[in-house]
Computed example of a mutant assay.
Amino acid sequence: MIRAAMAACLALALAACATTGDAAAAHPEARAYSATADATAEVDAALARAATSGKRVLLVLGANWCHDSRALAGWLETPRFAALTAQAYDVVFVDVGTPQTGEGRNLDIARRFGLADMPGTPALLVLTAEGRAVNLDTAASWRNAASRSEDAIFEELVALAGESG
């Protein structure tokens, strides 16, 4: 009974990250999340760089198993997004495992910046150099990244680059 319940929960969690239809062909994908990286050190280094560069930290919390996480990472690697991030952000990808099933990792990083719950992946936090999240209200809403349009994602990242929070 417990195994069946766990399997059902896992299926629901994975379905929350999956999309169907033509959206899969409409975006690039990248595997940018490393389960072995020292995520805390990477975040701390990005915050230190942001303190001198004036950029924001774009903290992308996802996993390579997740279609939406790979889609968001893929967009960030395209020339259009790379130009924006080079100008406005220091990007850090943090592998969070499968927090939906209780198998998360690096969730202390999300909590450190005020994101107490991750109902799905990816989540996206924009941080000031002081480590203040400017988008806590929308950080967990990126679970549908694969079905968002390139322009919608780009416009939101442009707005978050200058938002005072």
Rank of each mutant, 00 (worst) to 15 (best):
T52H: 10
P122H: 04
T101A: 14
T98S: 15
E103W: 11
D117T: 14
G120C: 11
R31S: 14
A48D: 12
L125R: 00
L157E: 04
P99N: 07
R70V: 06
D90E: 14
R31Y: 09
A51K: 15
G131S: 09
A7L: 11
A41C: 05
A11T: 13
E29F: 11
R49Q: 11
C17Y: 05
A110I: 07
A71Q: 01
D38C: 04
A46K: 00
E29D: 08
H67T: 10
A123E: 10
G165L: 11
P28Y: 11
R112F: 04
A152L: 11
A46R: 00
A5G: 06
A37G: 01
A23V: 13
A146T: 05
F154C: 06
N135Y: 05
T101F: 10
G104S: 03
L115S: 02
L72K: 04
A145V: 03
G165T: 10
S34C: 09
S34K: 11
P28H: 09
C17R: 09
L14N: 08
A140E: 09
E29R: 13
A161K: 02
A88Y: 03
A18D: 14
E77D: 14
A39V: 03
E163C: 11
A25T: 15
A139K: 01
S147F: 00
L157Y: 08
A18K: 14
A39N: 02
Q100N: 07
I153P: 05
L115F: 01
N144Q: 14
A139F: 00
I109Q: 03
T138L: 10
V43L: 00
A23Q: 12
A24E: 10
A18T: 13
L61E: 10
L61V: 06
R49D: 10
A25Q: 15
A146Y: 00
Q87Y: 01
D117K: 14
P119E: 09
D108G: 15
A51D: 06
K55C: 00
E29K: 13
A35K: 11
A11M: 12
E155C: 06
L160I: 07
I153H: 07
A45Q: 10
L157C: 08
V94P: 02
K55Y: 05
P28L: 11
